[in-house]
Design a protein around this nucleic acid. Sequence first.
DNA 1: CTAATTTAGTGTAACGTTTTACCAAATCGA
DNA 2: TCGATTTGGTAAAACGTTACACTAAATTAG
Lengths: 351, 351
Amino acid sequence: MSDKVTITDVARKAGVSLSTVSNLLNGRSKRMRPSTEQRILEAIEELGYTPNQAARQLKTGQSAIIGLIVPSVANPFYGIFARHVESAALKLGYQVLLGNSDRDPEREFKYAEELWGYGVRGLIFGSSLFQLSHFDNLISRGLHVVAFERPTQEADGNRVDSVGIDNYLAARLATKHLLSLGHKRIGFLSGPIQTVSRLDRLSGYQSALRDADIQSDPELIWDVSPSENSYGDADAVDLGRQGTQELLSRLNPPTAIFAINDMFAFGAYAGAKDMGLRIPTDLSVVGVDDITLTEIVQPSLTTVRQPIEKIATMAVNRLVARLEGKFDEEQDHQILPPQLIVRSSTTQPPK
Amino acid sequence: MSDKVTITDVARKAGVSLSTVSNLLNGRSKRMRPSTEQRILEAIEELGYTPNQAARQLKTGQSAIIGLIVPSVANPFYGIFARHVESAALKLGYQVLLGNSDRDPEREFKYAEELWGYGVRGLIFGSSLFQLSHFDNLISRGLHVVAFERPTQEADGNRVDSVGIDNYLAARLATKHLLSLGHKRIGFLSGPIQTVSRLDRLSGYQSALRDADIQSDPELIWDVSPSENSYGDADAVDLGRQGTQELLSRLNPPTAIFAINDMFAFGAYAGAKDMGLRIPTDLSVVGVDDITLTEIVQPSLTTVRQPIEKIATMAVNRLVARLEGKFDEEQDHQILPPQLIVRSSTTQPPK
DNA sequence: CTAATTTAGTGTAACGTTTTACCAAATCGA
DNA sequence: TCGATTTGGTAAAACGTTACACTAAATTAG
C-alpha cells in the first residue's frame, strides 16, 4: 500500500485520463459510459483514494471548512453549541475548525487570520464583544461572519449577520417572574459586563424593575472588571459564588438573584450555602441558557431557555448560504424568543 | 485592498524574488542583508500577507493541523479536554480539527478519512473502543494515533500510543472508599459497557469487592446496550437517573453507587430524589473525572479525579513529537494516577 | 449518402508555495 | 593580481487537483 494515492493513480488503474476521474468526482458524469464509471469507482475503492483537499483548495480558492470562535468550550453552554454547529455543518458538507478565545480580541484576530490561511471564508462568532473591527481587513477581503449571542451593531458596518435570542426580553422575563413572586430586592449577578448580551440583559432587568416602580439600586448589581484571564467564561461558577457572597454581605441584601447565565446561577447556589442560606427558601435564583444539569441540580434551576440547537443550525445555514452565493441580501438578524422555564429555585421572599 | 495577497505580491513590493520571501519565512535568512529583510517584512505588514496553507500543504505533504475525535463535546468532560488539547496544540503551532463521533466506528473512520484529506497526519482519539481496525489503512499510510482514556491494546498492532489514568485503580479507589464506610451493597452504574475504560472500571470495582470477601452480585450492576444513538455520552444524566431508579427498585437495593463518570453520578442524584431517597444519608454516590460542578452540586460529589489538563498536554506533546520525527520508539503508554477526592456525597450506610 | 450534432472522452494551464540547484558579484587569502 | 571561497540572491520544477477548450468517433436527420 503506497503512502499516497492521487487522482493520477486512479486514472491509470481505470484506464482513463485523470480529467475523466475528476469529471466523475465533480458531478460531470453525464457524458460517461456506465462501464467507464464503474471502472473508476472500483479503482477508487481498491486504492482507497481520498481527494487532497489542499489541491482542491488551491485551485478553487476555498475549502469546505467554517470557523467557530467561542469564549471557551469548557463552559457547557459553548460545548453544547459547538456540538450542534458541527452537526449542522457536516450535514452541509463542511468541517468545523474551533477556536477558544476567552473573548480576547487579539486572540480572535489571530485565529481568524490563521483560519483564513486554511481557506476558511466563513466564521461563526460568539464572544459578544461590541467591536468586530479586528476582523475588518478580512471582511473586506470576503470573510463572511455570523455572530450569535448579540444582534448586529452599528459599528459592524452592515457586514455581519447574526442569530440569537432577545437578551433584553430574557432578562425581563426572569426579573418579572421574581417580581411576581413578591421580591423587591433583586440582585443582578454578572461577570465582566462589557459585552452586548450582558448589557442587554442588564437593561432588561432594569426595565422590569421600572415597570414595577422599583428603583434600580447599584448595591444590588455585581460585576467585576475583565481580568487578564477572562470574562469569566471558564470560571463562571467561582465568580458566581464570590459575587453572591458579596451581595449577601451588603447592608440590605437581595432576596432573589438574576444570574447572567446558568453557570453563574450554580455559583450563586454555592455562595448562598456558604452564607448559610437555603435556595429558594432564603434566596431565589434564576439563570439563563437552560444547559444540561439545570433539571438535576438541587433545587432544579428556574432559567430562561435559549434554543441552542436552533440557533446553531440557523447560524450554520446562514453562513453556508452566504458562502455558496445563495444569500446575497444585506446583513440579516434573526431573533429567537427566549422562554421562561420555572422550576424549583424560585419562591416567595422570606418574611 | 485586493482579495488575494500572494507571496508574489510581497516579492514585487519588496523588490526581490519570491524565493527570497520564502527563504525569510522559512528560516533561511542567514544569507540576507538586513535591509532586504526589512523591506520584505514591511511589505508583508503593509499587504497583510498570510501564507496560503493549502499551497504549503500541497508542497510539503502535511499541514499544521491535528485531529481530535471525542464522543461528544456537549459532555463537559470532553469539552474541558478539548479545550486543553487546543491550548497545548496552539503552543506548538498546530490547529485542532474536532470531531464528535458518539463512539461510532463508521463515523470515526469517515472523520479520519476526511481529516486525512486536509493533511491531518496525527489524531488524538478518545472513544475507548476496543478495535481501531477502521484506522488500519490510514495508519499504514503514516497516520499517527494517540489514544486517551484507554491503554494500548494487542489489536492495535504496536502502532498506537496512549495516555490516560489507570481505570482499574480508579474503580478500586472508589469502591474501597465505599467499603471503608461500611457499605456491603454497592451498585455499579454505567452506560453501555463495551469500552475498554468502562470494562476496566468494572474489573476494578469487582476486584475491590473480592478483596473484602464480598461476592459481586449481577443485580447490583446496571448498564444498557448501545442504542442507535450512543454510548450515553450525550445523555449520561438521563441514563444515570434511569439506572439509579432501577437499581433502587430491586429486591435488595444498593446503599451506595459507583457511577462510571460524574455525569452518571449527577443522574444518580436525580434518580435517588425521584425514589424519595437522600444523598448521602440513604444512598452514597461516587463518580469519576472531577469535572466542573462536582464541588457545587448539593451535596458536593465524591469522585476520582482525572488530571484532564495533564493528559491532554501529554497526548499533544507525544503526537507532535511523532509528527515532527522527534519520537521514533515503539508504541508508548503513559499512565497517570487517579486520585480519590472525598466530598459530601458519601457516608455510612443507613441502618 | 452527406452534413450536422452528440457522445465520450482527453490535454493542459493554473492555483501559491517550497526547495533545490545555480550563478554573478564581492571578498578573502596567498 | 589571480584563484578560491563566500555572499546574496534567482529560476524553475513540482506538489494534486479543477475546469475549460478541444477532438475523434458515433449517431442522427434530411
